[in-house]
Design a protein around this nucleic acid. Sequence first.
DNA 1: CTCTCACGAAGTGTCGACACCTTGTCTCTG
DNA 2: CAGAGACAAGGTGTCGACACTTCGTGAGAG
Lengths: 243, 243
Amino acid sequence: MAGGTGLNSDVRELRQELLFSALRGIEGSSSLAFAIFENLAVQIVEGRLPPGHEVNSADLARQFSTSRTPVREALLLLEREGLVIVPPRRRPFVSPVALTQVREIYEIRGSLYGLVSELVVARATDEEIAALAQWGQLLAQDAEQGDVDGYFWHNVGFRNAEASLSRNTELQRRLSSLGLQMHRFRHLSLSLPGRLLHSVADHDRLLRAYADRDAALAAAVSRSLVLRGLRAIEKSDRFRESS
Amino acid sequence: MAGGTGLNSDVRELRQELLFSALRGIEGSSSLAFAIFENLAVQIVEGRLPPGHEVNSADLARQFSTSRTPVREALLLLEREGLVIVPPRRRPFVSPVALTQVREIYEIRGSLYGLVSELVVARATDEEIAALAQWGQLLAQDAEQGDVDGYFWHNVGFRNAEASLSRNTELQRRLSSLGLQMHRFRHLSLSLPGRLLHSVADHDRLLRAYADRDAALAAAVSRSLVLRGLRAIEKSDRFRESS
DNA sequence: CTCTCACGAAGTGTCGACACCTTGTCTCTG
DNA sequence: CAGAGACAAGGTGTCGACACTTCGTGAGAG
């Protein structure tokens, strides 16, 4: 695991860090359980453990060569992130990705990022907003080069930066949790033709609203930015009601 | 526990039901752990376990006469609701109620209830909205009679009703979780003079917006309704940074 | 040949045990 | 008499074990 694909593994870790940073603080209990949690979360998010796949604690304990206790805790953490379903007395399994649930999550996320943008306008310094604008440039570059993957991760970075400027830790944590879920269908959202350019335009509008300290506009743009992602998924015929 | 204060205990259970209904679905793992979770949650929310109070798994296991395993799971659930902090290798304790955290939670809640109101306008039938209006009447009665407690619980009922009309289960769940936290400082919010009447007026405006199917207005009112609660707390000198 | 039911494999929830760590106390030194 | 450091008490994280439940399989009845 250490070493792995050389430089690629570094990038990988960075990305993982991006995903879990806000979650790390709360990690109850042991670090072993949290390690297992992270490991499984990544596998689920990247689709290596497909929806419906059984994740029983006995198998996993063997696999990680620990006892079942930390595994069970990890499963509870996964459940709280909505990645796994743990029915009582039955075997846990990777939660399905139903379109309705996707919609629900996007709605929440849209609303919360609206809030983030308002708070950013209210609380961020001019320097911080300028720093945000640099993310916008990265995004524009990626879009120009058609680098969907780069765009996605820079977008995550941008989002995290925004969230942290909101100066609301609870909000950050909850968004982080939603973000984890969203990664499961991320490829659906950005791969539509023309989508990236639309998105870049939206980011521009958002950054301008920040610069103008226009809270209402920023909130509206931010929200519609998220919801546009939802529309993209809804239209995507690549969506399958995967189990 | 069964029987208890006679009729009062029934009311109590009903209230508890109101608090936990949306959380019940996810209860991972065992029902024993969930029972302990509920028990402790109520004690914390009602202030019988004050902030900072130590809740170590060994003691609790003796107290509930089980092993530590289900207790530990219950503690994890409590942590996910933000009621308890479980530092690694250290004894868990009831989480403090800091004003900043209260503010953070109210901000989130305000935003999400704005979303709820929008969704209600979009998705609820006329009959359902009429049913909501009945809650408004109950609230008005309580306010008239100065029944703060009755007002509070009818308000919870109203909120739950709204949330369920949003037809977004994820949203319901997350609001439920926030609601649990808010109960810890509820007495701070409503006890200010004149607060109830303001609140009733806001509810009226909200219900009218529903009747008119005015999504934007409903969202704004709903949100300001929550934020007014926050202002009330901020002004309340009864607030102590209870460790 | 299909449906029912009993059996067995395997997983879950819970338990008691154990090593390690943290913390408060108590002693010893300066 | 104050402060550093050893010690004991008690908590945490992890483990392996065990009863109970669930589910798949296969034998037997219709």
